[in-house]
């Protein structure tokens, strides 16, 4: 039973990783090949979200056993005993990628807002968001 659960766990983990990399491919296609600026920005948000999920997955700790799932990286007691600390070290997920992702999300928000403002301005000035026609600078 435990072995079956572990196999299933590995299988699901691999599917997750595969779909993340597939997602990277799709979003890069969207950014590099779609003509509309809005669709490029949507693909950009998908891309950065995929990167963030990838970072979270890195902090994930292989499921020690089905009876002992990983726990959040928070010590719940104010005066932890040594058993608490051993349990924490053995089972808690890595908190650092979550801190990184928090920073990356905030930065991504600022960049996306700025790009949307620029797209709006492009639409006002050029009357289109098709990058094949927003090509006044060349040569």
């Amino acid at each position: 039973m435990v072995r079956r659960m572990n196999e299933l766990n590995t299988f699901l983990f691999n599917i997750l990783l595969f779909s993340l990399f597939f997602n990277v491919g799709i979003s890069l296609y969207g950014i590099f090949a779609r003509p509309s600026l809005i669709k490029k920005i949507i693909a950009l948000t998908i891309f950065s979200d995929t990167a963030n999920v990838l970072a979270i997955i890195v902090g994930y700790r292989g499921w020690p056993s089905p009876e002992q799932p990983p726990i959040p990286p928070v010590i719940t007691s104010t005066e932890p005993t040594s058993e608490d600390l051993i349990r924490f070290i053995n089972r808690a997920v890595d908190p650092l990628p979550q801190a990184l992702v928090l920073t990356a999300i905030v930065i991504g928000l600022a960049v996306t807002l700025f790009l949307i403002f620029l797209t709006l301005q492009v639409y006002r000035l050029y009357g289109t968001t098709d990058v094949r026609r927003v090509a006044r600078l060349r040569g």
Binding site: V131, R138, G139
Partner: peptide, 18 residues
Amino acid sequence: LRDQMHNGVLNDWSVYMV
């Protein structure tokens, strides 16, 4: 160089970048 590479279209640049 001028008319095909640096033609100002974002999607044509990305061919080289990709």
